[in-house]
Amino acid sequence: MSTSISSSQHSGSPATTDIAYVAVFTALVIVLGFVSVPVGALGVPIVLQNTALILAAMVLGPRRGFFVAALFLLVGFVFPVLAGGRTTYFSLSSPTVGYVLSYLIAVPVAGFIAARGADKRRSAQVALFTLAGILGLALQYLCGAAGMVLRAGLDVPAALAAQLPFIPTDVLEMAVMVAVALGVHSAFPGLLRGERS
């Protein structure tokens, strides 16, 4: 099976395969939305969805990763699939707006960086995936802080300080996501080749 998947990647992923990947990862992100711990006065939750979306980027690359984020948010307009049982509409009108919008930016950026490691040696791949995770999280934090400034009336220092409770858990989560992504690419080494352009 690994050989057949790798071969299909060399010839370009069929649309049906891309749709299947996007659907599976979107479902994973939705399921992880049930894990949510509100923190701080604004009740912004510590979640697994944000790092799971970066995982999608590292596994699927920028294009398919973006589709996962977009589909996830589209589903969220109909069903309360965002962390804490929220809808996309609710989140866009709350202090979490920056985090929600960041998915459409952070995911393709992280995916682009991860895709550069498709054919690299293991050490370079680890470095690029780690960089993808760090930059993806940083973009989420920056956009999240901007949302708090706009919707919660915080000044910039206070909005940036509000990110601090998330850093330890997000770093731990991201370390796990990087390890998972590396494991997936060890099993299916051609998975990112079509995503490097």
Rank of each mutant, 00 (worst) to 15 (best):
L172Q: 06
L32D: 02
L160W: 15
A57R: 00
V78R: 11
D119I: 01
G136S: 06
R63T: 11
G194C: 10
V24L: 15
A69E: 06
Y99M: 08
F166C: 14
A83R: 07
A138F: 14
R64K: 13
K120S: 14
Y103R: 13
H10I: 12
P95F: 13
I167Q: 08
L139K: 02
S4P: 00
Y141G: 05
V149R: 08
T17M: 11
R196L: 02
V107Q: 09
A145V: 05
G190E: 11
V97T: 15
T16C: 13
V178M: 13
A56S: 14
G153R: 01
A23K: 05
P80K: 03
S94E: 12
L42N: 10
T51E: 08
F66L: 14
V176Q: 05
V68N: 03
F66W: 08
F90K: 12
V37S: 00
A114H: 13
I134C: 04
A132Q: 13
A41N: 05
S6H: 15
L160P: 05
A56L: 08
K120A: 13
G43Y: 10
V178N: 09
G147C: 04
I30R: 06
A118H: 13
V81P: 09
F34D: 12
Y89E: 11
F188P: 03
A152L: 06
V100C: 04
M177I: 11
G33W: 00
A179F: 09
A52G: 14
A145G: 13
R121K: 15
G85Y: 01
P62K: 09
M148Y: 05
G136D: 06
G190D: 07
S8L: 00
L82M: 05
T51Q: 05
A179N: 01
G84T: 05
T26I: 00
G194T: 15
S36C: 10
P189H: 06
L192N: 05
V22A: 13
A127E: 04
L71Y: 04
L172A: 14
V100S: 09
V35W: 14
G190I: 04
F188L: 10
P165S: 11
T16G: 11
Y141T: 03
L172N: 03
V97W: 15
A27R: 13
A187H: 12
I105G: 00
G117R: 01
A159W: 07
V29N: 06
T96M: 04
Q125W: 07
